[in-house]
Design a protein around this nucleic acid. Structure first.
Lengths: 203, 203
DNA sequence: CTGCAACCTGACCATATGGTCAGAAATGGA
DNA sequence: TCCATTTCTGACCATATGGTCAGGTTGCAG
Protein backbone atom coordinates (compact mmCIF):
# COMPACT_ATOMS: atom_id res chain seq x y z
CA UNK A 1 0.00 0.00 0.00
CA UNK A 2 3.06 2.20 0.21
CA UNK A 3 3.83 2.26 -3.52
CA UNK A 4 0.64 2.92 -5.41
CA UNK A 5 1.21 3.01 -9.12
CA UNK A 6 3.69 0.57 -10.61
CA UNK A 7 2.84 -3.10 -10.74
CA UNK A 8 4.61 -4.61 -7.79
CA UNK A 9 5.35 -8.24 -8.46
CA UNK A 10 6.88 -9.87 -11.49
CA UNK A 11 3.65 -11.77 -12.19
CA UNK A 12 1.62 -8.61 -11.97
CA UNK A 13 3.91 -6.81 -14.36
CA UNK A 14 3.79 -9.65 -16.85
CA UNK A 15 0.03 -10.12 -16.75
CA UNK A 16 -0.93 -6.48 -16.82
CA UNK A 17 1.32 -6.05 -19.82
CA UNK A 18 -0.20 -9.08 -21.57
CA UNK A 19 -3.70 -7.77 -20.89
CA UNK A 20 -2.95 -4.30 -22.22
CA UNK A 21 -1.27 -5.74 -25.29
CA UNK A 22 -4.26 -8.00 -25.95
CA UNK A 23 -6.69 -5.19 -25.28
CA UNK A 24 -4.89 -2.92 -27.73
CA UNK A 25 -5.18 -5.63 -30.35
CA UNK A 26 -8.88 -6.15 -29.76
CA UNK A 27 -10.05 -2.60 -29.03
CA UNK A 28 -8.22 -1.19 -32.04
CA UNK A 29 -9.77 -3.77 -34.32
CA UNK A 30 -13.31 -3.80 -32.90
CA UNK A 31 -13.85 -0.54 -31.10
CA UNK A 32 -14.82 -0.31 -27.45
CA UNK A 33 -18.31 -1.75 -27.69
CA UNK A 34 -17.32 -4.29 -30.28
CA UNK A 35 -14.59 -5.74 -28.11
CA UNK A 36 -15.47 -8.37 -25.51
CA UNK A 37 -13.67 -9.37 -22.36
CA UNK A 38 -13.66 -12.95 -23.61
CA UNK A 39 -11.74 -11.95 -26.74
CA UNK A 40 -9.24 -9.96 -24.71
CA UNK A 41 -8.84 -12.77 -22.22
CA UNK A 42 -8.30 -15.33 -24.97
CA UNK A 43 -5.79 -13.07 -26.71
CA UNK A 44 -3.93 -12.55 -23.45
CA UNK A 45 -4.03 -16.23 -22.57
CA UNK A 46 -5.84 -15.59 -19.32
CA UNK A 47 -9.27 -16.39 -17.94
CA UNK A 48 -11.91 -13.70 -17.85
CA UNK A 49 -12.14 -13.60 -14.05
CA UNK A 50 -8.38 -13.27 -13.98
CA UNK A 51 -8.58 -10.22 -16.25
CA UNK A 52 -10.90 -8.71 -13.73
CA UNK A 53 -8.47 -9.54 -10.97
CA UNK A 54 -6.03 -7.12 -12.60
CA UNK A 55 -8.43 -4.51 -13.89
CA UNK A 56 -11.63 -3.33 -12.26
CA UNK A 57 -13.64 -3.36 -15.49
CA UNK A 58 -13.58 -3.31 -19.27
CA UNK A 59 -13.73 0.48 -19.02
CA UNK A 60 -10.66 0.49 -16.79
CA UNK A 61 -8.59 -1.44 -19.32
CA UNK A 62 -9.67 0.88 -22.09
CA UNK A 63 -9.02 3.95 -19.96
CA UNK A 64 -5.51 2.76 -19.14
CA UNK A 65 -4.79 2.31 -22.84
CA UNK A 66 -6.11 5.74 -23.73
CA UNK A 67 -4.38 7.29 -20.78
CA UNK A 68 -0.95 7.73 -22.21
CA UNK A 69 -2.04 7.54 -25.83
CA UNK A 70 -2.58 11.23 -26.50
CA UNK A 71 0.84 12.06 -25.10
CA UNK A 72 2.54 9.40 -27.18
CA UNK A 73 0.58 10.55 -30.16
CA UNK A 74 1.54 14.17 -29.83
CA UNK A 75 5.18 13.56 -28.98
CA UNK A 76 6.35 14.09 -32.59
CA UNK A 77 4.62 17.47 -32.69
CA UNK A 78 6.17 18.50 -29.36
CA UNK A 79 9.59 18.12 -30.92
CA UNK A 80 8.89 20.85 -33.46
CA UNK A 81 11.69 23.27 -32.72
CA UNK A 82 11.13 27.01 -33.26
CA UNK A 83 14.88 27.52 -33.68
CA UNK A 84 15.30 24.99 -36.46
CA UNK A 85 14.97 25.46 -40.19
CA UNK A 86 11.24 25.62 -40.99
CA UNK A 87 11.28 23.20 -43.91
CA UNK A 88 13.44 20.70 -42.05
CA UNK A 89 11.39 20.98 -38.91
CA UNK A 90 8.11 20.35 -40.67
CA UNK A 91 9.48 17.61 -42.90
CA UNK A 92 10.98 16.02 -39.82
CA UNK A 93 7.63 16.15 -38.12
CA UNK A 94 5.96 14.51 -41.10
CA UNK A 95 8.56 11.75 -41.12
CA UNK A 96 8.26 11.11 -37.40
CA UNK A 97 4.48 11.02 -37.64
CA UNK A 98 4.54 8.62 -40.57
CA UNK A 99 7.04 6.43 -38.78
CA UNK A 100 4.68 6.39 -35.82
CA UNK A 101 1.83 5.19 -38.04
CA UNK A 102 4.02 2.46 -39.37
CA UNK A 103 5.27 1.36 -35.98
CA UNK A 104 2.00 1.76 -34.08
CA UNK A 105 -0.93 1.18 -36.41
CA UNK A 106 -3.04 -0.30 -33.64
CA UNK A 107 -2.61 2.77 -31.49
CA UNK A 108 -3.57 4.88 -34.48
CA UNK A 109 -6.73 2.88 -35.01
CA UNK A 110 -7.59 2.96 -31.31
CA UNK A 111 -7.36 6.72 -31.51
CA UNK A 112 -9.34 6.88 -34.75
CA UNK A 113 -12.07 4.72 -33.29
CA UNK A 114 -12.33 7.08 -30.35
CA UNK A 115 -12.55 10.15 -32.58
CA UNK A 116 -15.10 8.57 -34.89
CA UNK A 117 -17.40 7.93 -31.95
CA UNK A 118 -17.12 11.58 -31.00
CA UNK A 119 -14.29 11.10 -28.50
CA UNK A 120 -16.61 10.38 -25.55
CA UNK A 121 -13.66 9.24 -23.43
CA UNK A 122 -11.24 11.93 -24.58
CA UNK A 123 -13.24 15.13 -24.31
CA UNK A 124 -11.41 16.29 -21.21
CA UNK A 125 -8.02 16.00 -22.88
CA UNK A 126 -8.97 17.76 -26.10
CA UNK A 127 -8.26 21.19 -24.62
CA UNK A 128 -4.69 20.01 -23.94
CA UNK A 129 -4.51 19.03 -27.60
CA UNK A 130 -5.75 22.44 -28.65
CA UNK A 131 -3.21 24.19 -26.45
CA UNK A 132 -0.30 22.30 -27.98
CA UNK A 133 -1.53 22.80 -31.52
CA UNK A 134 -2.11 26.50 -30.96
CA UNK A 135 1.40 26.85 -29.58
CA UNK A 136 2.98 25.11 -32.54
CA UNK A 137 0.71 26.93 -34.99
CA UNK A 138 2.09 30.18 -33.63
CA UNK A 139 5.63 29.01 -34.38
CA UNK A 140 4.66 28.22 -37.94
CA UNK A 141 2.93 31.57 -38.30
CA UNK A 142 6.11 33.29 -37.12
CA UNK A 143 8.14 31.43 -39.72
CA UNK A 144 5.75 32.59 -42.38
CA UNK A 145 5.84 36.18 -41.12
CA UNK A 146 9.63 36.06 -41.21
CA UNK A 147 9.41 35.02 -44.86
CA UNK A 148 11.05 31.69 -44.16
CA UNK A 149 8.05 29.66 -45.22
CA UNK A 150 5.31 29.90 -47.82
CA UNK A 151 2.13 31.32 -46.32
CA UNK A 152 -0.12 28.50 -45.08
CA UNK A 153 -2.86 28.18 -42.52
CA UNK A 154 -0.88 26.52 -39.71
CA UNK A 155 -3.85 24.67 -38.21
CA UNK A 156 -4.85 23.13 -41.49
CA UNK A 157 -1.22 22.32 -42.24
CA UNK A 158 -1.16 20.29 -39.03
CA UNK A 159 -4.48 18.65 -39.88
CA UNK A 160 -3.03 17.76 -43.26
CA UNK A 161 -0.04 16.09 -41.65
CA UNK A 162 -2.28 14.13 -39.34
CA UNK A 163 -4.67 13.09 -42.07
CA UNK A 164 -1.96 12.08 -44.52
CA UNK A 165 0.08 10.03 -42.11
CA UNK A 166 -2.69 8.37 -40.12
CA UNK A 167 -4.51 7.40 -43.28
CA UNK A 168 -1.95 4.69 -43.96
CA UNK A 169 -2.57 3.04 -40.60
CA UNK A 170 -6.30 3.62 -40.27
CA UNK A 171 -7.25 2.67 -43.83
CA UNK A 172 -4.60 0.02 -44.22
CA UNK A 173 -6.97 -2.50 -45.84
CA UNK A 174 -7.99 0.02 -48.44
CA UNK A 175 -4.44 1.11 -49.18
CA UNK A 176 -3.29 -2.48 -49.47
CA UNK A 177 -6.24 -3.46 -51.64
CA UNK A 178 -5.71 -0.55 -54.02
CA UNK A 179 -1.95 -0.82 -54.33
CA UNK A 180 -2.02 -4.56 -54.82
CA UNK A 181 0.87 -6.83 -53.91
CA UNK A 182 4.52 -5.85 -54.15
CA UNK A 183 4.27 -2.45 -52.54
CA UNK A 184 5.59 -1.03 -49.31
CA UNK A 185 2.94 1.58 -48.61
CA UNK A 186 4.97 3.39 -45.98
CA UNK A 187 8.11 3.63 -48.09
CA UNK A 188 6.13 5.03 -50.99
CA UNK A 189 4.21 7.33 -48.70
CA UNK A 190 7.46 8.61 -47.24
CA UNK A 191 8.73 9.62 -50.67
CA UNK A 192 5.38 11.07 -51.69
CA UNK A 193 4.94 13.12 -48.54
CA UNK A 194 8.50 14.44 -48.69
CA UNK A 195 7.77 15.67 -52.19
CA UNK A 196 4.36 17.03 -51.26
CA UNK A 197 5.49 19.06 -48.29
CA UNK A 198 8.63 20.26 -50.02
CA UNK A 199 6.54 21.70 -52.83
CA UNK A 200 3.95 23.05 -50.44
CA UNK A 201 6.34 24.91 -48.19
CA UNK A 202 8.81 26.24 -50.73
CA UNK A 203 8.57 30.00 -50.77
CA UNK B 1 -44.22 -10.51 -56.28
CA UNK B 2 -43.98 -9.14 -59.79
CA UNK B 3 -41.95 -6.05 -58.92
CA UNK B 4 -39.14 -7.09 -56.66
CA UNK B 5 -36.97 -4.20 -55.67
CA UNK B 6 -38.65 -0.89 -54.94
CA UNK B 7 -40.76 -0.53 -51.83
CA UNK B 8 -44.28 -0.93 -53.04
CA UNK B 9 -46.65 0.93 -50.79
CA UNK B 10 -46.43 4.48 -49.47
CA UNK B 11 -46.10 3.22 -45.91
CA UNK B 12 -43.35 0.87 -46.83
CA UNK B 13 -41.44 3.59 -48.60
CA UNK B 14 -41.78 5.94 -45.66
CA UNK B 15 -40.80 3.41 -43.03
CA UNK B 16 -37.92 1.87 -44.87
CA UNK B 17 -36.56 5.33 -45.46
CA UNK B 18 -36.97 6.25 -41.79
CA UNK B 19 -35.21 3.08 -40.73
CA UNK B 20 -32.27 3.59 -43.07
CA UNK B 21 -31.94 7.20 -42.00
CA UNK B 22 -31.99 6.19 -38.34
CA UNK B 23 -29.58 3.35 -38.97
CA UNK B 24 -27.15 5.67 -40.73
CA UNK B 25 -27.25 7.96 -37.73
CA UNK B 26 -26.62 5.16 -35.26
CA UNK B 27 -24.22 2.94 -37.22
CA UNK B 28 -22.02 5.89 -38.21
CA UNK B 29 -21.78 7.04 -34.63
CA UNK B 30 -21.41 3.67 -32.90
CA UNK B 31 -20.10 1.23 -35.45
CA UNK B 32 -21.87 -1.99 -36.36
CA UNK B 33 -21.42 -3.84 -33.09
CA UNK B 34 -21.89 -0.72 -31.03
CA UNK B 35 -25.26 0.03 -32.56
CA UNK B 36 -28.37 -1.68 -31.18
CA UNK B 37 -31.69 -2.34 -32.83
CA UNK B 38 -33.37 -0.57 -29.92
CA UNK B 39 -31.43 2.60 -30.64
CA UNK B 40 -32.26 2.45 -34.33
CA UNK B 41 -35.91 1.73 -33.61
CA UNK B 42 -36.12 4.63 -31.17
CA UNK B 43 -34.40 6.97 -33.63
CA UNK B 44 -36.78 5.89 -36.38
CA UNK B 45 -39.84 6.18 -34.15
CA UNK B 46 -40.77 2.54 -34.65
CA UNK B 47 -40.90 -0.55 -32.47
CA UNK B 48 -38.14 -3.12 -32.70
CA UNK B 49 -40.38 -5.88 -34.03
CA UNK B 50 -41.58 -3.44 -36.64
CA UNK B 51 -38.00 -2.80 -37.75
CA UNK B 52 -37.68 -6.51 -38.27
CA UNK B 53 -40.86 -6.52 -40.27
CA UNK B 54 -39.11 -4.34 -42.82
CA UNK B 55 -35.62 -5.78 -42.60
CA UNK B 56 -34.67 -9.38 -42.02
CA UNK B 57 -31.91 -8.55 -39.53
CA UNK B 58 -29.53 -5.95 -38.18
CA UNK B 59 -27.04 -7.18 -40.76
CA UNK B 60 -29.55 -6.61 -43.53
CA UNK B 61 -30.05 -2.97 -42.56
CA UNK B 62 -26.32 -2.42 -42.44
CA UNK B 63 -25.81 -4.23 -45.72
CA UNK B 64 -28.41 -2.08 -47.44
CA UNK B 65 -26.68 1.06 -46.18
CA UNK B 66 -23.30 -0.15 -47.34
CA UNK B 67 -24.71 -1.37 -50.58
CA UNK B 68 -24.79 1.84 -52.53
CA UNK B 69 -22.24 3.60 -50.37
CA UNK B 70 -19.09 2.72 -52.29
CA UNK B 71 -20.66 3.88 -55.54
CA UNK B 72 -21.79 7.17 -54.04
CA UNK B 73 -18.43 7.56 -52.47
CA UNK B 74 -16.49 7.03 -55.68
CA UNK B 75 -18.79 9.11 -57.87
CA UNK B 76 -16.57 12.21 -57.64
CA UNK B 77 -13.57 10.20 -58.81
CA UNK B 78 -15.53 8.73 -61.73
CA UNK B 79 -16.08 12.23 -63.05
CA UNK B 80 -12.36 12.76 -63.53
CA UNK B 81 -12.19 13.53 -67.22
CA UNK B 82 -9.10 12.53 -69.22
CA UNK B 83 -9.86 15.23 -71.78
CA UNK B 84 -9.99 18.09 -69.30
CA UNK B 85 -7.18 20.28 -68.02
CA UNK B 86 -5.22 18.22 -65.48
CA UNK B 87 -5.02 20.87 -62.78
CA UNK B 88 -8.70 21.75 -63.13
CA UNK B 89 -9.74 18.13 -63.16
CA UNK B 90 -7.84 17.26 -60.01
CA UNK B 91 -8.81 20.44 -58.19
CA UNK B 92 -12.40 19.78 -59.20
CA UNK B 93 -12.15 16.31 -57.79
CA UNK B 94 -10.76 17.63 -54.52
CA UNK B 95 -13.59 20.14 -54.29
CA UNK B 96 -16.27 17.55 -55.01
CA UNK B 97 -14.80 15.18 -52.49
CA UNK B 98 -14.61 17.84 -49.80
CA UNK B 99 -18.15 18.90 -50.53
CA UNK B 100 -19.18 15.30 -50.12
CA UNK B 101 -17.55 15.17 -46.68
CA UNK B 102 -19.39 18.31 -45.72
CA UNK B 103 -22.74 17.13 -47.01
CA UNK B 104 -22.47 13.50 -45.91
CA UNK B 105 -20.31 13.23 -42.82
CA UNK B 106 -22.30 10.30 -41.51
CA UNK B 107 -21.71 8.31 -44.66
CA UNK B 108 -18.04 9.14 -44.39
CA UNK B 109 -17.91 7.87 -40.83
CA UNK B 110 -19.86 4.74 -41.71
CA UNK B 111 -17.26 4.05 -44.34
CA UNK B 112 -14.38 4.86 -42.01
CA UNK B 113 -15.78 2.55 -39.35
CA UNK B 114 -15.91 -0.23 -41.87
CA UNK B 115 -12.33 0.35 -43.01
CA UNK B 116 -11.03 0.58 -39.47
CA UNK B 117 -12.47 -2.83 -38.67
CA UNK B 118 -10.67 -4.23 -41.70
CA UNK B 119 -13.62 -3.89 -44.08
CA UNK B 120 -15.13 -7.30 -43.22
CA UNK B 121 -18.31 -6.41 -45.09
CA UNK B 122 -16.66 -4.68 -48.01
CA UNK B 123 -13.91 -7.08 -49.04
CA UNK B 124 -15.76 -8.24 -52.12
CA UNK B 125 -16.14 -4.70 -53.47
CA UNK B 126 -12.55 -3.64 -52.86
CA UNK B 127 -11.41 -5.07 -56.21
CA UNK B 128 -13.95 -2.77 -57.89
CA UNK B 129 -12.38 0.10 -56.00
CA UNK B 130 -8.92 -0.94 -57.14
CA UNK B 131 -10.05 -1.15 -60.75
CA UNK B 132 -11.45 2.37 -60.73
CA UNK B 133 -8.42 3.81 -58.98
CA UNK B 134 -6.04 2.05 -61.35
CA UNK B 135 -7.96 3.40 -64.31
CA UNK B 136 -7.85 6.98 -63.03
CA UNK B 137 -4.23 6.61 -61.94
CA UNK B 138 -3.38 5.77 -65.53
CA UNK B 139 -5.01 9.00 -66.69
CA UNK B 140 -2.94 10.97 -64.21
CA UNK B 141 0.21 9.16 -65.30
CA UNK B 142 -0.55 10.07 -68.90
CA UNK B 143 -0.90 13.71 -67.96
CA UNK B 144 2.46 13.59 -66.25
CA UNK B 145 4.06 11.85 -69.22
CA UNK B 146 2.63 14.53 -71.48
CA UNK B 147 4.31 17.15 -69.31
CA UNK B 148 0.99 18.67 -68.33
CA UNK B 149 1.39 17.86 -64.65
CA UNK B 150 4.20 17.70 -62.13
CA UNK B 151 5.39 14.13 -61.62
CA UNK B 152 3.52 12.51 -58.74
CA UNK B 153 2.70 8.96 -57.74
CA UNK B 154 -0.96 8.82 -58.87
CA UNK B 155 -2.08 6.28 -56.30
CA UNK B 156 -0.68 8.23 -53.42
CA UNK B 157 -2.09 11.42 -54.88
CA UNK B 158 -5.52 9.83 -54.71
CA UNK B 159 -4.88 8.56 -51.19
CA UNK B 160 -3.89 12.09 -50.24
CA UNK B 161 -7.14 13.48 -51.59
CA UNK B 162 -9.13 10.90 -49.69
CA UNK B 163 -7.22 11.40 -46.47
CA UNK B 164 -7.36 15.18 -46.59
CA UNK B 165 -11.04 15.47 -47.37
CA UNK B 166 -12.42 12.67 -45.24
CA UNK B 167 -10.42 13.82 -42.24
CA UNK B 168 -12.78 16.75 -41.77
CA UNK B 169 -15.79 14.46 -41.50
CA UNK B 170 -14.24 11.54 -39.65
CA UNK B 171 -12.28 13.57 -37.09
CA UNK B 172 -14.83 16.36 -36.81
CA UNK B 173 -14.65 16.47 -33.01
CA UNK B 174 -10.92 16.91 -33.12
CA UNK B 175 -11.00 19.55 -35.83
CA UNK B 176 -13.69 21.48 -34.01
CA UNK B 177 -11.91 21.18 -30.67
CA UNK B 178 -8.61 22.42 -32.10
CA UNK B 179 -9.99 25.28 -34.19
CA UNK B 180 -12.23 26.54 -31.43
CA UNK B 181 -15.40 28.51 -32.04
CA UNK B 182 -15.91 30.91 -34.90
CA UNK B 183 -14.50 28.75 -37.66
CA UNK B 184 -16.06 27.07 -40.66
CA UNK B 185 -13.72 24.08 -41.03
CA UNK B 186 -14.91 23.21 -44.51
CA UNK B 187 -14.56 26.73 -45.88
CA UNK B 188 -11.05 26.99 -44.52
CA UNK B 189 -10.22 23.49 -45.72
CA UNK B 190 -11.47 24.42 -49.18
CA UNK B 191 -9.07 27.32 -49.41
CA UNK B 192 -6.20 25.36 -47.91
CA UNK B 193 -6.63 22.36 -50.18
CA UNK B 194 -6.95 24.55 -53.27
CA UNK B 195 -3.64 26.10 -52.35
CA UNK B 196 -2.03 22.79 -51.48
CA UNK B 197 -2.95 21.02 -54.67
CA UNK B 198 -2.20 24.02 -56.82
CA UNK B 199 1.33 24.10 -55.47
CA UNK B 200 1.71 20.34 -55.62
CA UNK B 201 0.65 19.96 -59.23
CA UNK B 202 2.24 23.03 -60.75
CA UNK B 203 4.96 21.91 -63.16
C1' DC C 1 8.88 -26.65 5.48
C1' DT C 2 5.27 -23.78 6.70
C1' DG C 3 1.88 -20.44 6.40
C1' DC C 4 0.20 -16.32 4.57
C1' DA C 5 -0.56 -13.45 0.81
C1' DA C 6 -0.94 -13.33 -4.00
C1' DC C 7 -2.91 -15.43 -7.82
C1' DC C 8 -6.38 -17.95 -10.28
C1' DT C 9 -10.78 -20.58 -11.46
C1' DG C 10 -15.47 -22.75 -12.18
C1' DA C 11 -19.84 -21.71 -11.42
C1' DC C 12 -22.93 -18.36 -11.30
C1' DC C 13 -25.79 -13.92 -11.91
C1' DA C 14 -28.18 -9.88 -14.08
C1' DT C 15 -28.77 -7.48 -17.94
C1' DA C 16 -28.62 -6.41 -22.85
C1' DT C 17 -29.57 -7.70 -27.21
C1' DG C 18 -30.93 -9.88 -31.72
C1' DG C 19 -34.71 -12.13 -33.04
C1' DT C 20 -39.58 -14.73 -33.06
C1' DC C 21 -44.51 -15.18 -32.97
C1' DA C 22 -49.43 -15.17 -32.32
C1' DG C 23 -52.55 -12.18 -32.95
C1' DA C 24 -54.39 -7.21 -32.90
C1' DA C 25 -55.05 -2.96 -35.58
C1' DA C 26 -55.05 -0.32 -39.71
C1' DT C 27 -55.56 0.04 -44.67
C1' DG C 28 -57.68 -0.02 -48.88
C1' DG C 29 -59.97 -2.20 -52.88
C1' DA C 30 -64.51 -4.11 -54.30
C1' DT D 1 -69.66 -1.88 -45.70
C1' DC D 2 -66.86 -5.97 -45.82
C1' DC D 3 -62.86 -8.51 -45.68
C1' DA D 4 -58.31 -9.73 -47.28
C1' DT D 5 -53.91 -7.89 -47.01
C1' DT D 6 -50.62 -5.15 -44.89
C1' DT D 7 -48.84 -3.20 -40.90
C1' DC D 8 -47.82 -3.34 -36.13
C1' DT D 9 -47.33 -4.93 -31.15
C1' DG D 10 -46.66 -7.11 -26.49
C1' DA D 11 -44.80 -10.93 -24.72
C1' DC D 12 -41.42 -13.96 -25.10
C1' DC D 13 -36.92 -16.61 -26.10
C1' DA D 14 -31.90 -17.80 -26.54
C1' DT D 15 -27.62 -16.17 -26.32
C1' DA D 16 -23.84 -13.02 -25.29
C1' DT D 17 -21.65 -10.38 -22.16
C1' DG D 18 -19.82 -7.68 -18.12
C1' DG D 19 -19.14 -8.82 -13.72
C1' DT D 20 -19.12 -11.48 -8.90
C1' DC D 21 -17.72 -14.82 -5.53
C1' DA D 22 -16.41 -18.72 -2.69
C1' DG D 23 -12.93 -21.30 -2.57
C1' DG D 24 -8.80 -23.64 -4.67
C1' DT D 25 -3.79 -23.20 -6.10
C1' DT D 26 0.69 -21.19 -6.29
C1' DG D 27 4.65 -18.36 -4.91
C1' DC D 28 7.67 -16.97 -1.59
C1' DA D 29 9.45 -14.95 2.94
C1' DG D 30 10.92 -16.59 7.26
Amino acid sequence: MSDNNPARTRIQRRNRKAILEAALEVFSAQGFRGATLDQIAAEAGLSKPNLLYYFASKEAIHAELLDGLLDTWLAPLRELNPDGTPQDEILGYVRRKLEMSRAMPRESRLFANEMLQGAPRLTEVLPKLKALVDEKAEIIRDWTRAGKLAPVDPHHLIFAIWALTQHYADFEVQVTAVLGPGHDPYDEAGAFLDMLFTRLLRI
